[in-house]
């Protein structure tokens, strides 16, 4: 179970820290899918970075635990080994590091931290081939540098590929649907659905109801101004799509 309690965080800038998250609480049971929607700048990506442990964000209060473990006490790589996965809103380019080296190193680093045997080259190759095929990613792409020259949609698919390969327990997807065409959206959603499992939890950040048609959420939260202002079932997403955020945010304010 994922438990976020009264999480407060700053982003550190050259002009000093700015408070972004102003007390976020939510708990996700194993097997559940939660969606977070909210206006631009409300702190959705900040929440995802804080969960993943980016160093330019400072936690000023609250706690996050994953299956009883204090997530905030761990280094980013330890969080990954513990089962956290963040699909980035803006996947970064890594010139000079090719996809297959990146994926292999990443899989084996996590296995090693978990005390599992590293996979040999052949098993890795097989594994990557299968997952690429499922996600409609060409083998050619494995020879290219990570995200360099990838289209927007290819970058997002690549995030889902990494997620599928690393078999996390808690997946945070930050606008993985943005920039996808309709077919790619379906492929990505199928990829996510294939990973749904009674032991795995998802936090899906999105602006669009469309993704939630494919990936049915159990709970929908509205984040505004660094706080969760409303929580409901899947119908909340539909309501938002019709009315926009203004009404809901005003209603609670």
């Amino acid at each position: 179970m994922i438990e976020i309690k009264n999480l407060q965080a700053n982003v550190n800038t050259d002009e000093g820290p700015i408070e972004i998250l102003k007390g976020i609480s939510l708990s996700i049971q194993p097997g559940e899918v939660h969606a977070i929607m909210g206006p631009n700048g409300s702190g959705k990506s900040t929440l995802s970075y804080v969960l993943a442990g980016r160093e330019d964000y400072g936690v000023t209060g609250g706690s996050v635990s994953m299956n009883g473990e204090d997530l905030l006490a761990l280094e980013p790589e330890e969080r990954a080994a513990a089962g956290l996965f963040l699909a980035f809103q803006y996947p970064v380019e890594i010139p000079g590091v090719n996809m297959s080296t990146f994926l292999k190193t990443s899989i084996n680093s996590i296995r090693k931290q978990r005390g599992e045997d590293e996979l040999d080259a052949l098993s890795l190759l097989k594994l990557m081939k299968t997952k690429c095929k499922e996600l409609g990613i060409s083998d050619d792409m494995m020879k290219r540098a990570v995200n360099v020259g990838f289209s927007g949609g290819e970058k997002k698919r690549n995030e889902v590929l990494q997620m599928a390969l690393l078999e996390p327990k808690f997946c945070v997807l930050d606008e993985t649907d943005s920039g996808l065409d309709i077919d790619a959206l379906k492929i990505v959603a199928d990829g996510v659905n294939a990973l749904r499992d009674p032991k795995r939890s998802f936090l899906i950040i999105t602006h669009y109801q469309r993704l939630l048609d494919y990936i049915k959420p159990d709970v929908v939260h509205v984040l505004a101004g660094g706080k969760i202002v409303k929580t409901g079932g899947p119908e909340l997403a539909q309501e938002l799509e019709k009315q926009g955020y203004a009404e809901i945010i005003e209603a609670v304010a």
Binding site: E55, E77, S109
Partner: peptide, 12 residues
């Protein structure tokens, strides 16, 4: 990129 790699399990 450093953070991206760490978030995928590589030590710093």
């Amino acid at each position: 990129p450093l953070f991206c790699l760490r978030s995928r399990g590589l030590s710093a």
